[in-house]
Amino acid sequence: MFYFIKFVLNLRNLVYCMAKKIFSPIDGGTLEGIAKILGHKEYGLTGTELSRFIPEAGLNDIDPTNTKWKRLFNSFVDFQNRSRNSNTILKFVNITMKPSRFIGRNDQFEFMRGELNKRLSFIGLTLNDAGVFNPIDTSRTIREAELRVNRFKSKLENRNIHSKIYEYCNTELISENYFHSVFEAVKSVFEEIRRKSNLTLDGGELIDKAFSIKNPILKINALQTETEISEQKGFANFLKGIFGMFRNTTAHAPKIVWNIGEDEALDIMTTVSLIHKKLENTCL
């Protein structure tokens, strides 16, 4: 009930503010980007929803037989050419991005909101999690826009990912490049092992030397009991598996062949984070 009341108040404030303020026309590139997100063939609005929301927002559906994003873009352009403002276009975004429409589809909502906010940042607006616009400093570059909206990094932060992940692959995380994020994250594990052990080896040789049972350089426990010895062996084998499955694959397979989605990347990064937490507490 609290969140519903909050949404109603925010929406009322938005309507009040938009009634008083005239928003400048949105440039063609940004307008096209917004239309492509809202009219995307996989995660965007359906044709039926466009037929409903275009007139509801006060736009003219001037090209109903065209592809979804072009149909929407043409409606946007028609309005701006006639009115010389973007108020009704922003109203359309607000209507279609009401959180209540996405119950049970939060991932879709957050994805669309994030992609819209990258475009909206170029006109000094952001759509908050209540589906309401807030003013922000205008983005001037792609990097600025991506820094403002990074769903992948936000999800990693929610998983309490180890800080070493951000040290080794910050640029890739900012650009949401899952393939290279995984590659850099896995490389970070072996770089940390070399740093802590003062070894210059790589792969299996590095792991066998650093986590040897008889002459270990690094120990994840006291190695006094069979259980502790088994844990050390298991951790070493775990590292070898990570190296073989992800480091070798990402190093030798082109991105187009070895495709990594967001969910898989999150799981891999969480696993790498666990390894870093273990390495942080190793004994010399």
Rank of each mutant, 00 (worst) to 15 (best):
E191C: 01
P254H: 02
K68Y: 13
F76D: 05
T270L: 08
I229L: 09
L279C: 06
N81W: 03
S175A: 14
N66K: 13
G131H: 01
V77S: 11
F122D: 04
H276A: 08
F79D: 13
G114N: 07
N87I: 02
G203L: 07
F235G: 00
N74K: 15
N128D: 15
N117M: 05
T282S: 11
A130H: 10
H40S: 15
N87C: 02
I37W: 05
S24C: 11
N237D: 11
I193T: 03
K153I: 13
E262N: 11
G124N: 10
P99F: 02
Y168T: 07
I256A: 05
L14E: 09
L50G: 11
E144L: 08
I5D: 06
I207W: 00
A265N: 09
L127K: 03
T200A: 09
H180T: 06
I62Y: 07
I217E: 11
L266R: 00
N215V: 04
G241I: 03
R143T: 15
F190E: 01
S212W: 01
L72S: 12
P135W: 03
R140N: 15
L45N: 08
G44A: 07
V8G: 00
L116R: 04
P55W: 09
D78N: 15
T30H: 05
N150R: 07
A251Q: 01
R52I: 15
E228I: 00
Q80G: 11
N10I: 01
A222S: 11
L279I: 02
A185W: 01
G204L: 08
T171R: 13
T96Y: 01
K219L: 08
E176I: 04
N170K: 13
K36M: 15
F2H: 10
S100Y: 03
K214C: 00
T225F: 01
D137Y: 07
S154W: 08
F111E: 11
T141G: 12
R71Y: 05
T271N: 08
K70L: 15
K21C: 09
G58D: 04
D27P: 08
M269N: 06
T225E: 00
I260A: 05
N106P: 03
D107H: 02
N248V: 07
F243R: 02
I142D: 14
S51H: 10
T141P: 09
K36T: 14
N128G: 06
D78V: 02
K278Q: 13
E144V: 09
I165K: 02
E262T: 13
T65C: 14
N237I: 01
N106G: 10
I260G: 06
N87E: 01
K68Q: 12
R105G: 01
S75N: 07
R247S: 05
S24I: 08
L279S: 08
A236C: 02
C169L: 13
R148K: 15
F4W: 02
A251E: 00
N13R: 14
F246M: 06
W69N: 15
T46E: 09
I193K: 03
K6L: 13
N237A: 06
P55T: 03
V182G: 09
G39C: 09
G241Y: 01
F53M: 03
R195H: 10
V272Q: 00
K196S: 09
N158P: 02
L201Q: 09
R71Q: 12
K6H: 11
F2W: 07
G28Y: 13
E167P: 04
F73Q: 12
N248S: 12
S86P: 11
I275R: 04
N150M: 12
K21R: 05
